[in-house]
Every structure is written in C-alpha cells, then in structure tokens.
Design a binder for these strands. Structure first.
Lengths: 347, 347
DNA sequence: AGTGCTTATGAAACCGGTTTCGGCGCCTTC
DNA sequence: GAAGGCGCCGAAACCGGTTTCATAAGCACT
C-alpha cells in the first residue's frame, strides 16, 4: 500500500532521495542542506555549491508534505466560484471564470504554488475538510456568498476579484465605476437617449455600481430610469422575455445597457424578434467581452477588462498576504477599455 | 513568521487541535484516534464514538501535511491542458476545458481531493517541482504532448480524457468512432454527397479517427475525399480562408464536416461570404456542442459528448488508480448523442 | 594569551500524523 | 488449568523536513 514516489535518475528500485541523502553526499548535516535550499540562514558559498551539486546529482526534490508540517504552508491557493456551473447559468460565466483561472494558475505556478479549482458546492465545510489551502481567490462574490463564512472561519487569507463586501483580506479593483461610465458615455455619444439597464437579481457590487451610475446619468440628462432585473440563473431566455415586454411599454427605446453578456444576447434576441435594427435603431452594449459578445450578429460592443492582468494581480497579492507581507486592502486594477463593435457603431 | 492556523470553535488564542488533544479528551492514545478516523484497524465501537465526540468537541481537522508525510499522498490531482489559453487559440477550447474541469473538480472534491489546474507552461519541471500531485488528468493529449514525459518521469498515475498514445495509465473513451459515424451518417441522411473534412494539423487521436472514418465512408459511397488541415492555433479565420478557397475548386459542395467548433464557425463565415445557404445548399456539422455552436446562425448540429460524465469517470478512475485498485486501461465513456440543429436540418 | 564577537555548522528537538510491535484481558480448547 | 487465539489498545518508532541551541573556528582587540 505504501508506494513512495520513485524518482529518476538512478536505479529504478531506489526510493526518492531525502535531505539526509543529500547531506551525506555533500558531507554536511541535514540542517545545513535545509538552510542552503531555503536561504534562511547564511551558508558558506562553497558549502552551498557542494549541496547544490549533490541535489542535482541525486535529482532531489523536497517532500512538500514534510516541509509543510513545519511551515504550515501547503503551497496551494484556491479559486472559488459561487457561480453555478450548470449549462443553465451559461457557459459565458465559465468563459469569464476560465480566463481568470488560467491567468491566476500561471501566476501562482511561477511561484511554485498550485491553483485548485473549487466549483460551487453545497457544503464547502465537508468537501474541503481535508484540503489544505493557504489562501483563496473569490470571483465577484455576492453579498451572501456561501464561501465567505467558511473562509473566515478557517482564517484563510482571501482576495476578491472585484469588490466584495468587506469580508476579505484584500480586493483587486475591477473599476466598476469607470466601466459603467465608459459604456454609458458611449451610448450617449452614439445618440441613445432612452435605454434600460439590465442587471441580475443577486447582490453583487457591480450591479449596484452600474445601477447607481445609470441612475445618476439618467437624472442628469432627464431620462426615465428603467432598471430591469433578471434572475441570472434563467439566463438569456429570461432576458429576452423581459426585454420583449419592456419594448412594448417603451417603443421609443434606442439603446440597451446590459453588463452581463447573457442578458445582452437575450436582449438581442428580443430586438431581432421585434424587428428593431441594431445598431441603427437600438445600440446595445455589454461588459464582459467573451465569446458570446463576439459571436453575436452584429458583434457586441464590450469592455476589455484585462482579466488576465486582474487575475495575476490578485494571485500575487494573495501570495504576498500569505507570506505575511502587507498588501493594500484595495489593489488597483488595470483600467478598462471599451471595444466598440457593430452593435453600437453607426455605419 | 510561523502562524499556525487558528480554528474555531473555542478561544481565538488557541492553536489548532491535534490528535494528541483528541486522544487526551477521549481518554485514548494518539494511535487509536488515528485508527478510529481511518478505520485501518478495528476499534471498539464505544471507543470510536468517544473519539468522534472529542473530535467534534474540539473541531479537530487532521493536518494533511503531517498525514501526507506517512501516506505519501497529497490529496490533489491535476488537470493538465496542453491547449493554448490565449484568445488566439479560441475561447471555445476554454469552454471545453472548463466543462471538464468543473465536473472533475466536483467528483474529486466529493472524495476530499482537490483539483489543481495546470495551464500550458513552458517548463513543467521547474514550475511543478514543489507541487505535490497524486495523479494527473490529461485532456485529449497530442502525440507529442509536453506533459507526458514529465508525468512519466515523476511516475505520476495519469488518466487521459479521450484516447492518448499509450503513455497513460488509463484512458476514458470519448468514442471517437461512434462520434464520427454519427456525424457522417447524419450528413449522408440529409442528402450531402460532397463534403470535406476540416481538421487541425496537430497529432491528436480524434483527428486520425475522423479522417479514417471519413475516408472509409467516402470510398464506400464513391465520394472524392477532401481533407483540409488547418493549424488550430490560427483558428476561425484560417478555417474561413481555407474553406473559401476550397469552395472555388468544388462548387458542388453540399456539406461540411468540421469536428472542431472553431473550424466549423470559420467554415460558416466562408459560406456566408460565398452566399451559400445553410442548410438548404450546404449542411454543416461539428463535434463539440459549446457556446460557439449554439450561437452560430443557424445553430450548428453538434454532438452531446456528455463531458461532465466523462470528466467524472476520469477523475474517479484516477482516484481508484491512486488508491492502488485496478482500473481498466480503457474506461468506456457515455455514448455520444447527436443534437440536430438548423445547420443541417431541412426546413 | 585571554576576552569578546561573528560566522558556519552539527546534533537534536520538533511538527502532527501513521504504523509497528507487543501486551493485556478474555474466551476457547484440550 | 495451561496453552493458544483473538480483539483491542498504548508506547514508541517513524516519515522528511525545519528550527533551535550549542559549539567550534576565526578574527580583532587589549
């Protein structure tokens, strides 16, 4: 049952090399090998090079479990997603998540830390009971995110991507205000004067921010604010329905502000159904520039959130936090840039 | 620098409980606590319940690092992807990968094992030097997959999703033959008699299988085989170009068999450009039923590969393997089902 | 030569589990 | 009633690292 990992190079029957083996070969003690590797204590350069030689001669790799028992570190961070993975909730969120996951995993791996993926699960307590985690990344957590209490109870450092509700160690700014302004200003520039805001029903910061900016601007220009809330779980189809109904009550509608891509494509469906030309009669814009926005016809104007950079910042901040180094509670993120496409561009 | 994880419930100043604490409270020895937890040795039911009581009273959670040092287990498996994550390679692959990742993570988590995500990296050796892994999942590895030698060298049990090239411990069958037949038969039923096969240039089993089945059927019905190879890295745009050129040489073309969704949508672009009606004049079918296939107009006929189930099977097989239990070298996967949509359906 | 300080190192304790080994009590069996 | 077997358990070794503590060597200074 015990099967210690066998390691090259060398005889196939050999167990994996340990510090002791390295120490013996280098003619030093185990403690010195440890110090040579980790640089916690000064080691004579000459000694160090003997140790290094022994390490590569034996193909030594430290046993992380043994190390972890003293350091308390597991060298793993988790990416938590409270978004439903079901197809119903839409592969669009999966795209969003995956962009972040890939970039975060890369940044972590560069520092020899592994990223573990935690999809939404009913009982995080039970499932993660035996999973050692040094820290957690949370993607746009909802106000009542089920993972937050769990992480707080375990005392796990947590960095959120996008604003959270104060329960995290740090957050990377996704610049919700700037993003909302970018899209709203663009709609206005393109001549839209009567457009609803489509958002989800869950309590997420960016919905709140979009709504606030939308209402503020609407008041400024004397537009009747129209905030349509759609249960995200129901996705595109629900958005199409709500939009279709809304079109009846506001025939003069000339734009749509739908930060969630699935809601935007839902609106597009309704507009096609109602024979409203996009962008000639109605301009449509969304936030997340995923596959969905790009495969719509016409393609949707969206925002480049630089998710890869955001994810990288978040992972790095988290690792700093884990190392015990101070990190700003709000890490500035890259500025969003609008990508104007056919759905809002005249001609 | 040392900051042992503090744990509820109890005084916030308290260190996390250990087996020793549990043993003391239950009035037994540490060894007995261990055996009560892991069930390796018989423990009197009465004793066990005392231990259980002590565990929950103290909120004890075993330290996985300490456990791992003896068991040699890290309780993590990795999902390796050799697919490029860049936008160029297409978010479609991300969707494919994410579906698998989510399902595999879930299946692993149910068994208290974490799934770590390994995006393509230049030097797996270096980056994963200190990342402990019990096993690996490989998604449709190419023949010269860079991860394979690494995994073999480390002696890490590996399960591939879809056929590999014999270098893995086990593989979950994605039923390439059945999938190819499903699509080809469907094209024929829909009256197509002159259709090319669009595949990628990399050495992947499913390209080989599709090509073999395609050629076999073409020979049967007397169709001139037309195999178009497109570098996957270049994606949709390249497919559109190749397809446009091909259309000139075969004006009578009445179908397209493009297993990769990005190649299928590329072909759709070319067809639109050339003013060929789909499905009236040309039927188009693809394999992966992702966002891409569904957001095409008309929607693409595709195959439900039951990726979630495949991923689950793969994760479970891998965990069995890790436990040392025997596993079939080819685990049967769920049968693919065709999803007929507008791109190939008459009327 | 003796004292004090710094630097480099080895020996041993330690981390928190698991596993081995052997002992004890109790029940059969001859 | 002694021998043997079995079920249950405690003591101690063990896993492979890190960290503490003591010491030896080297050097400067008095």
């Amino acid at each position: 049952m015990k099967q210690p990992e066998r390691d090259p190079p060398g005889k196939p029957g050999a167990k994996r090399a340990t510090v002791i083996d390295v120490a013996r070969l280098a003619g030093v003690s185990a403690g010195t090998v440890s110090n040579a590797i980790n640089g916690k204590r000064r080691v004579d350069p000459e000694t160090r090079s003997r140790v290094d030689a022994a390490i590569s001669a034996l193909g030594y790799r430290p046993n992380m479990a043994a190390r972890g028992i003293r350091t308390g570190r597991a060298n793993t961070i988790a990416l938590f997603s409270s978004m439903a993975t079901g197809v119903a909730a839409g592969p669009s969120r999966l795209g969003f998540l995956m962009e972040i996951a890939a970039a975060a995993a890369l940044a972590a791996l560069e520092r020899n830390v592994a990223l573990v993926l935690v999809p939404p699960i009913p009982e995080p307590e039970a499932a993660l009971r035996t999973v050692p985690l040094d820290g957690a990344l949370l993607v746009e957590p909802a106000r009542n995110d089920p993972f937050l209490p769990f992480l707080a109870a375990r005392g796990i450092p947590t960095v959120s991507i996008g604003a959270a509700y104060g329960m995290v160690s740090a957050q990377v700014d996704l610049n919700y205000e700037a993003t909302a302004d970018l899209l709203i200003d663009h709609l206005l520039e393109m001549g839209a004067r009567d457009f609803p805001l489509l958002i989800g029903t869950s309590a997420r910061r960016y919905f709140e921010v979009f709504e606030a900016r939308y209402r503020a601007r609407a008041a400024q220009i004397g537009m009747v604010p129209q905030v349509l809330r759609i249960e995200e779980r129901l996705g595109e189809a629900a958005a199409a329905q709500v939009m279709a109904r809304h079109l009846l009550s506001r025939p003069g509608l000339d734009g749509v502000l739908a930060p969630v891509d699935a809601l935007a494509t839902g609106a597009m469906m309704a507009l096609r159904e109602a024979r409203r030309a996009v962008p000639a009669e109605v301009r449509v814009v969304t936030r997340y520039d995923g596959l969905r926005a790009r495969s719509e016809a016409p393609q949707l104007t969206a925002v480049d959130l630089h998710l890869d950079m955001v994810a990288r910042h978040a992972a790095i901040a988290l690792l700093e936090l884990i190392e015990g180094r101070p990190v700003a509670s709000i890490v500035p993120g890259p500025l969003p840039q609008i990508i104007v496409r056919g759905s809002s561009r005249p001609g």
